[in-house]
Design a protein around this nucleic acid. Sequence first.
DNA 1: GCTCATGGTTCGACAATGCCGAACGAATCG
DNA 2: CGATTCGTTCGGCATTGTCGAACCATGAGC
Lengths: 249, 249
Amino acid sequence: MGETIQSVERAAAILRLLASGPRQLGVAELARGLGLPKGTLHGILRTLVHVGFVEQDPATGKYRLGATLLHLGSSYLDVNELRTRSINWADALAGRSRESAWIGTLHEGHVLVIHHVFRPDDSMQTLQVGTYLPTHASALGKVLLAHDPYAEPAAPPLRPHTKHTVIDPGALEEELERVRTRGWAAEMEELVDGEVAIAAPIKDRRGVVVGAIGIRGAVERLATDGALHMEYVSYVRDAARAITRDLAR
Amino acid sequence: MGETIQSVERAAAILRLLASGPRQLGVAELARGLGLPKGTLHGILRTLVHVGFVEQDPATGKYRLGATLLHLGSSYLDVNELRTRSINWADALAGRSRESAWIGTLHEGHVLVIHHVFRPDDSMQTLQVGTYLPTHASALGKVLLAHDPYAEPAAPPLRPHTKHTVIDPGALEEELERVRTRGWAAEMEELVDGEVAIAAPIKDRRGVVVGAIGIRGAVERLATDGALHMEYVSYVRDAARAITRDLAR
DNA sequence: GCTCATGGTTCGACAATGCCGAACGAATCG
DNA sequence: CGATTCGTTCGGCATTGTCGAACCATGAGC
């Protein structure tokens, strides 16, 4: 890739920085974070405000992300072929398993959730579309890591989320090997206590893994004595195969 | 507002154009749409690809929105105070009314949906967060229009969505006046046949309307002979008042 | 209530930066 | 098998954005 445009690159860096935390940031903070002069930053910020990507708090003068980004993000979902082709299958998976269904793809070293169906007859859940899951501590992530062609060796330190999270790189690599050979991944209370997950790979027409689909639910429903109920694994793998077949057309 | 940065402004225009339709666009199409030389556009596109805001289809060479935007959009939701403060109330509203609950705000002449709770015990609904609703054909939109300080007179032509959509500017203005005096808005099959909606305004600590909350459901559940059941109106107004009180703290 | 530090904002001069248009190779269509 | 149309590259020119200092407003500390 050749040269890139400085100001656009800087604008993107500002947006990433604003997105990195729930806090609003001031010009000075941003300038320090990016190592740029205040004046330069202000010019870019003014433009970002003008196009609606950033909003300025009238009271404090600080900056935060703007509403236009929300709309652009949801437009991305319309364009995303993997998502549009798999929505129906995810619904069906949630219906059969009576658990929440998830579809994710690898992005910047995380699992980006691109679809999420709530567990039937259970509202009061917050939607996770657009959020990141850790690759090493989620079933979706293990599937995607296991088939990642660039095979980044899961840069340590692996952050522990519960006492069951796999944080040893060697142990994780063994786990990924197991995922590759048997064709699906499990996650047993490694992200949230009391929750387990199952996932399987989705491939495009060339056989490349482009995403993963899975379910997530309470350990007492999906497993007994630490062993997953295999009918749930079948549901997930069926769904993954169905979408893969769909994408091949 | 002073001068803005050309290349950033152009980059934003590209993103908006890509988001305007579900189709992928090529360099030439974009250049024609924006009236810019191909070479110039290519440079910006290359940068947008580099920062992940745009993806290029390896097969056709055409461009589409990128996954980073989805993540930025969901980050916006974390920052948005109106949303974080009203999530619990929306859940409660959906629970009491047993209908889907919605929260929206005015953005670029549309209603931007910033929260959406599914109807209890009814999955198989697609999430609408980040999408636009028309201001003149939705209950949320009528509330927001009625209290819009800039009072743009709903630029005709008003697009009809069903045979009940109000398309006469005069009739709409009367309707808005009614919304202002009684404090809530109704929408009777004006957007989708068989569906009606109710909405009420949310105000910030200064009394300015910053959003609207409402419910939407089948006409046979929410109304009889074209008259809304008033207990649903109470649910919605209660929720709106509760959030307004919450924001005042 | 004064001082001082820190915040967001403006401005103008310099030159680096990104813009443009023409030219290239690949792919597609008739 | 020509003739378009596409995405991409490149180098010269001047437009454009960068930079740092200066400008106010705000708020904390004494």
